[in-house]
Design a protein around this nucleic acid. Sequence first.
DNA 1: GGACGGTGAAACTTCAGGTTGCCTC
DNA 2: GAAGTTTCACCGTCC
Length: 549
Amino acid sequence: MIININERDGEESIDIVLDTIQHKKQCLVFLNTKKSAEKLAEDIADNIKDISKKDIAEKALNALQSPTKQCNRLHKCMLKGVAFHHSGLVEEQRKLIEENFRSGEISVICSTPTLSYGMDLPAFRVIIRDLKRYGKRGMDYIPVLEYMQMAGRAGRPGKETKGEAICIAKTEAEKDKIIDKFILGKPEEIYSKLAVEPVLRMYVLSLISGDIARTREDLLVFFGKTFWGHQFGDIDSLSRIIDKMLNLLEEYKFVASNKSNVSDCTDCSKISCENSDDLFTSADVLKTDTLKNGNLKNTEDKKIKQIKYTATLIGRRVSQLYLDPLTANKLLEGIAKSDSNTPLFSHLQMFSSTLEMRPLLRMRKSDEEFIQGLLIKYEDALLEDPPKVYDYEYDEYLDSCKTAFFFHTWINETKEDKMLDEYGIEPGLIRVKLEIIDWLLYSLIDLCNISQIKDKVNILNKLRLRLKYGVKEELLPLLKLKSIGRIRARKLFDNGIKDLGDVKMADLSNLSTLLGHSIAADIKKQVDQEIKEIPKGTRKGQLSIEKFS
DNA sequence: GGACGGTGAAACTTCAGGTTGCCTC
DNA sequence: GAAGTTTCACCGTCC
């Protein structure tokens, strides 16, 4: 069915939404950018009168310690029962929106594709306003599969007998295109992405580490049975990648093999042979294409089949930590280069340049000046050589510097609203990036302990704690107390209470003025107890106090 | 006449998202 | 490529 809208020109989606609300139904609107989602939600809210949802709006506003512009905007919309939803919101706000949409308190959500996948959030009407999105080749149509995911949200099974999914065409030509491509078209084929190097690196290591595969043959058999094997069956190219990965993992010392013991005697079936000086590497397998004739190839094949791989202690741990071996090696090499004079920014840049941290925060035009300033200050102290200005990786390198700068700003107690206003970093994104760097830090600390480079552990532990709380080093002693976070610790510190000893000495009434009576009494009680008892029952993921004292 | 506010055109800027991973109680 | 945001020129109003 094609709906013709003859209301206000250029505001078709608003008109359809208002019509939906009039009929006391709910709708989801899908757009292609976060800004668009916020703007449309705001425009819709501006057109709604006689609705006031103060309770939920207040909750959205106060989800952060200091509300950002984004919080204020969401608050304004939610007062009218309208919300926007995208990755820049924090988890609490997203949940609040989803729950209240399910309960019917919220009538409209303007969303980026966050809501299109894997979420049980049906609505009577779904409006897909943007069917194009900016990509590598400029604006391009979204995949049909994605359209189907969005349109599939229309209709509430068990509650309504029908649902409506509406696309908006600006011209007749566009209308025809939408009908052909999305409504009558077929979804794209799904392809396995297994044979991509980062994925294979991890799986090869985990298969060896878990004793599921011990030889190259085992790996080929395993991957041959996967969806990738079923789909492509190109075992030659897969085997080349596997050989490359095995070589790499050996180079990193995450796996070890018995190559040096494998004989080059063609008739020897045992693994070990006295005259085997010949060191055979997996890379040599690549040469087999040129050695296709005669016994030589058979000899090579026999040798390869005899090579057995086992994970080293550190390799096993890398696999357990679910780290990409490339990242693990990069971090270990980087930290080995650091010393007590290495600036924290250099550590942060190292973490920011890992695959796990992607997508990085993008450098905007207005960021250029301060990023250049940072480079002048820190470039010589980085733990990895930066690319040249004309290298294609250079832009990504700048993005990694911006991401590192963001972490650096965070551990210097910058508030979330300032981060959003000045650097365009949304609170939701802040949380995600902090979670990733926490995991990477935890992993590196663990790997340092195994690799006997324990002298770096203290610096990393401190950095982890500072990132967790977003504080300067001087506040760390106060964070040992329960109920004390970055805001209260700063309050205490600025009033001369700088460590647990000061808390012990401080007058209860002074503390009460700063923190309120119940918290003041509580921390007094805490300092009277053994310090080692304090971490019990602390927040999730908090590091134990002994490590930092 | 100058300050101020409103308006609209032009110039500028930016552009989705996800899961799982580790620890511990 | 498109949409949102910012900037700037212009004009009208008010004191």
